[in-house]
Amino acid sequence: MSKMNDMDPAGAVLWAPHDAEPDMIATRTLGFWLYLLSDAMIVASLFASYLVLNHRMNAAAGPTAGAVMHPLTALWETILLLSAILAYGLSLVALKRKDRRGVLAGFGVACMLGLGFLVMEGHEFADLALRGAVPERSGYLSALYTLVLYHAVHIVFALLWTAVMAVQVARQGFTPNVVYRLLNLKLFWFFQGFIWIYVFCFVDLTGALHVH
């Protein structure tokens, strides 16, 4: 019944022959992944808020989803963002080949494309704000701005982080600490792709649908 009876104390190994050092890189990336999942819960709450506040009543006689969405612009933003993510992914392929210049080139392309994404999105929202659709206008616009800009803030941090990692790769090379950070940054970039496709599908596309 109890496990105690099963084990013969005579031949048992009592002490590990060596310290079982956990795999540092795998441990660090798992922790960062858990952080990303917790971040996903914040995004889920923002999506839930958006869903609740995306009602005619929450527009408070201001613009509704159909009036502020430009799905075609959003598609261009999608292309820019996914390309930036792909560029970062390809720089990790260069990492596999120990190609330091390839890694740095990938970083550069990713940063440029990410910056392009931010400029385009900033332009879109500045345009919206100039037409009077500011977040203070209605509950719907508050939810819209917050959800989209929360993603944009992540991209800003992704760019900042990529720049820092470019310095580290250039100065320190591929030490274990640099490598685990590169892997974490990969998770971070790829995760933004996830969030963006939901923004694209459930904010931009359904906004054009007039389902609500």
Partner: peptide, 25 residues
């Protein structure tokens, strides 16, 4: 102990795959 090894041999580095990345894109 892991620091003595080449971090680039870590399976998470080795699983980078250009073709798959482009396919997903």
């Amino acid at each position: 102990s892991t620091e003595c090894q080449d971090p680039l041999q870590h399976p998470q580095v080795q699983m980078a795959h250009g073709g798959q990345y482009i396919a997903a894109y």
